[in-house]
Nucleic acid binder design. Structure first.
Ligand SMILES: [Mn+2]
Ligand SMILES: [Mn+2]
Ligand SMILES: [Zn+2]
Ligand SMILES: [Zn+2]
Lengths: 157, 157
DNA sequence: TCCTTATTAGGAACCATTCCTAATTAGCAG
DNA sequence: CTGCTAATTAGGAATGGTTCCTAATAAGGA
């Protein structure tokens, strides 16, 4: 189901959000992406059509949509944030070579029980499984990574 | 099993790592912590005994221990890195109020099958479940957070 | 004991993100 | 349609965690 810009404007009004060209364009790119883009990725993709767009607006927009529940940050590590507008419950596979993130929708993962051994007053609201490994083109962990592994510290993990 | 400083020095030699007072102290604090501390947390805890310690050394040490497989970064988001020296397979519960991280060792979580729908050539090497919610003292998501929620952007999620 | 190389400390640099501010604009009421 | 008001935007500065760079130090092996 491909949402048009009009569909998105409609959705924004349903959610009580103001509809602006920038906001619509950003969400439009994000919802039709499966790449879990960064703020800068989105900025790069929306910029051609909105030359005055500022990266700050992308961050602000993502935080507004996040608060509204239309966008989630993907939990992949402490590096830069990746965003996801796919609200159906799902999990992720992260390639440790190229950092690509693939959706996983195995229904067996959606019925994990609340874990044992928690404090009684802890209330769990969600959970997510993060699989890690190497995609076909990134095998042999130390070679052929798309982004050249610079850095003075030894690579951890 | 509480490891003494001597035990740790022994372990380092087993792993082919040089044993220095700073490195030993950092690992000693980390392995006896259940708090998944940040680099700065470790720096603060080790500093009294090693006044000349630099934060840089903490980062360097963590990266060396990470490469050796003695320490793992905990996957809790894109903010600052948290570290864990608990190598037994386990998962985490993160309080979205105070950001505390609790270990979960439910064996039911340690036998999740490889998810369906993956590219055939993707090789999964590990996975982790991240539960999120609110601890007893952080209920009512918008109130009583330990760290006051400053920031101009609306809080996402 | 001496050598070689890793480690350390300290400072600067980096960069993703947030903060600050003034101008613009969307949505609403009249 | 017109004007009001608060949200949104753009741009620039600031922040802060992490990494980079360098010279001095110290660990482990010969
Ligand atoms: Mn996803
Ligand atoms: Mn842990
Ligand atoms: Zn890959
Ligand atoms: Zn809490």
């Amino acid at each position: 189901m491909k949402l048009s810009l009009e569909d998105i404007q409609h959705k924004f009004r349903e959610y009580g959000l103001k509809s602006t060209p920038q906001r619509t364009a950003i969400y439009h790119v994000l919802i039709h992406s499966t790449a879990h883009p960064t703020a800068e990725d989105l900025f790069a993709q929306v910029s051609p059509a909105h030359p005055m767009l500022s990266l700050n607006t992308v961050y602000y927009t993502l935080s507004v949509l996040g608060t509204a529940g239309l966008v989630r940050e993907v939990n992949v590590g402490h590096d830069r944030a990746r965003y996801d507008a796919n609200l159906t419950p799902h999990h992720h596979v992260i390639c440790q070579g190229c950092q690509n993130i693939i959706d996983v929708m195995d229904p067996r993962l959606d019925c994990l029980a609340s874990p044992s051994g928690l404090p009684h007053d802890f209330e769990i609201t969600s959970y997510q499984v993060a699989f890690r490994g190497y995609c076909g083109t990134c095998r042999q962990p130390q070679a052929s990574t798309t982004t050249s592994p610079t850095g003075n510290y030894p690579a951890s993990s």
